[in-house]
Structures are given as C-alpha cells and as structure tokens.
C-alpha cells in the first residue's frame, strides 16, 4: 500500500499542472460555487478534492504506457486494485487536513466565511466519494483511457450539477428531493457499491491485456 501511495504522491507533486491544481483548486471552488450555507461548501471541497486526488495519479498509470513498468513490479494485480480502493480513505484523510488548514487561513484572513472542520459534512462526504469512485475505478481498470475519461467526466459533471443545484436552491433542490444526502441508506448503498466495484475491478483488471 505504501508503495502505491508513495508513487501517487510523487507523481502528483512532480507535475507542475497537478501542483497548480493542488494549490488553486480550493479557492477556485470557493469562488465558483456560491452557496447559501458555508458548511455545504466544505462538503463540496471534501468530495471534489478527494475524488480528484484518487483519480489523477491513477489515471496516469492505468491509461499511460507506465502501466507496463508498474505491472512488472512485484505486486499482483489484485493488490494494485485493493490498495487503490483503500487509498481513497487515505486521500480523504489528507483532504480533511489540507482543506482544514487552507480554509482556516481563508477564514482567518476574512476572505470568505466557510467551514474548515465539520463532522456532519465529513460523514456525509465519504459515502458520496465512495459512490463516485466505485463507478469510475472499474472504468479505468477495464477500458481504454478515452472511455474511462468519458466515465470520469460524466461522474464529475453530474456531481457539480448536483452540488450547484443544492447550493443554489437549497432545501427545494432536486438532490434533496431524491433524499440523496439523507439517512443511513446512503451509507449502506456506498458500502455495497464500493465492495461490488472492488470485486468487479479485481476481476476486470486481472483478465485485462495491458
């Protein structure tokens, strides 16, 4: 697991574009997504940031030619998949710390009033991240980069449309109408989807010609 995370972090921090994204994505989200509720902004940042942290270095590997190197190293394909799914939680933890510090500074400087730590939103964010990654990961493990990118874009845009809908309309939003962010059902749904997705990705990746 450490090898996989080490690789992901080295890739993220070595690329100028990714470094730029890491630094400016939070302020970008803050000023793009206007919300009636400061805690909702925190939720959007947690989900978007964790999701992108999980997908970006992974996309380099599964889509690019580097997959030959990584697949020639002493690690089984099942382990690659398993650690990838496990690392989402690690990135979620990183996001809580990083976004927390970043948003605290923004608050302290009185640039914008936004939550920098909110347990309720953390609990609501993790199932959403799990649902999104459980849809996108199998696509990266099985399909060619172009198809996987389309799945990724569809999921990410859906999230933004949903988030914008909620942030603007609030309690009357379509997302609320679906009950998407409420109750324990979402947690069970997320856990179920994540496990099924993990097993599916293992099966797909194990039988794939690289």
């Amino acid at each position: 697991m450490l090898g996989i995370i080490k690789r992901d972090l080295i890739i993220l921090f070595s690329n100028k574009r990714e470094r730029f994204f890491l630094i400016f994505y939070i302020p970008f989200l803050l000023f793009i997504v206007e919300s009636y509720d400061s805690k909702f902004m925190y939720f959007v940042i947690l989900v978007a940031y964790t999701y992108l942290l999980s997908i970006t270095p992974f996309a380099y590997d599964i889509s690019g030619r580097t997959r030959y190197i990584m697949s020639s190293l002493p690690i089984s394909r099942k382990e690659v998949v398993f650690y990838k799914y496990l690392s989402t939680f690690f990135y979620f933890a990183i996001t809580i710390v990083y976004a927390g510090i970043y948003l605290w500074i923004i608050n302290a400087l009185k640039i914008k009033s936004v939550d920098y730590f909110n347990v309720e939103m953390i609990i609501k964010a993790i199932p959403i991240v799990m649902i999104f990654t459980s849809i996108v990961f199998p696509a990266y493990f099985r399909f060619e980069p172009k198809i996987a990118q389309i799945v990724h874009m569809v999921v990410f845009i859906t999230f933004f449309i949903g988030a914008t809908n909620m942030s603007v309309v609030g309690e009357k939003s379509f997302v609320k109408y679906l009950g998407f962010l409420q109750g324990k059902n979402i947690v069970f749904l997320a856990i179920g989807m994540y496990i099924v997705s993990l097993l599916l990705s293992m099966k797909l990746y194990e039988n794939r010609d690289l």
Partner: peptide
C-alpha cells in the same frame, strides 16, 4: 523494455524511489 515506460516528468531519483519500494 524496448521503450521508456517510466514517468517522463520524474527525475531518476524520484523514479528510483517509486520502484525501490516494491522490491524486497
């Protein structure tokens, strides 16, 4: 391999750090 399949943006040391962590 016949072509370079390493991450082009990384330095030799960074790439070595990644690969080394997998070997016992």
């Amino acid at each position: 391999y016949d072509e370079n399949y390493y991450y082009e943006d990384l330095t030799i040391k960074q790439m070595k750090d990644i690969v080394a962590s997998f070997y016992s």
